[in-house]
Nucleic acid binder design. Structure first.
Lengths: 134, 134
DNA sequence: ACTAAACCTTGCCATCATTGGAAGGTCAAG
DNA sequence: CTTGACCTTCCAATGATGGCAAGGTTTAGT
């Protein structure tokens, strides 16, 4: 299987397959005589794993660890759970930050009449001219 | 005022002040005979505006527009409101995505016993199903 | 067999905001 | 006049991905 087939079979672009190889996430692919990279079902399986982990928001560094754990049949579930919990905690922090911003912005927008007049509490707030809403 | 003073007065690092200048967010600073950049209160005010807008999650492109609007005393509040609303919409989309991921991860973590045994629904899920690789 | 299309290779650039370092010039105080 | 804090510019890296270019390979159609 060439990289193109591996890409469509795994859902990971050929681009990113090469990238993951260079980044050490996956071992260097075997090469055909022509120099083309060769992939088998095992590789596709690994790529699908990576794709799902990316969708779940894991960083490449985290995925590297997850792959090691995945390939270790003796791994304790504890380690995986810890890694996932740390990631979940990150996610929740980010969510809270974004929600806080969204909340403030919602308030500002609600107080902006949004017509042709130049008065605008949104700009006033960014300018530091205080309290757009009480 | 040199760039260092401007940085501590505005809360924007000297590094980023130069960056914003190169990016066209702020006009090129006046220079002293020595080549040092000079800043006045007006510049500090602008830098504080930028800092607040960044904290609010606006992109530099959006901030560029906000600055133009801010400096235009005739601007209609409508335009500012539209820009802010578009940004809020982006924020809400991102929040929803992260929440969806966090929810799925929470489920997986809850079903992982997390002890010394190798069985782990988190890895199983990333691998594509109940049966892991091989 | 020849040719064109589709595929592969490597490598460099761009994004976005920010930080880091290196190499060198300038200013203020001792 | 030296030292150290400050400034200058340029170059690089982050993280994940996309784009393009120039060139080699394979495959399918004639």
């Amino acid at each position: 299987m060439n990289i193109g087939q591996a890409a469509s079979a795994s859902g990971v672009s050929a681009r990113m397959i090469r990238h993951y190889e260079a980044a050490g996430l996956i071992p260097k692919a075997a090469r055909a005589y022509s120099g083309y990279r060769r992939y088998d079902e095992r590789d596709i399986h690994t790529l699908r794993f990576i794709r799902r982990a990316r969708i779940a928001g894991f960083s490449t560094a985290q995925i590297k660890k997850l792959l090691l754990l995945w390939q270790d049949r003796q791994r304790p579930a504890r380690e995986v759970k810890q890694l996932a919990a740390a990631h979940l905690s990150d996610l929740q922090t980010r969510i809270a930050e974004l929600e806080s911003i969204a909340h403030a912005l919602t308030q500002l927008i609600a107080h902006c009449h949004g017509d042709e007049r130049p008065q605008c509490p949104i700009l006033d707030n960014l300018a530091g001219n205080g309290t757009a809403h009480e």
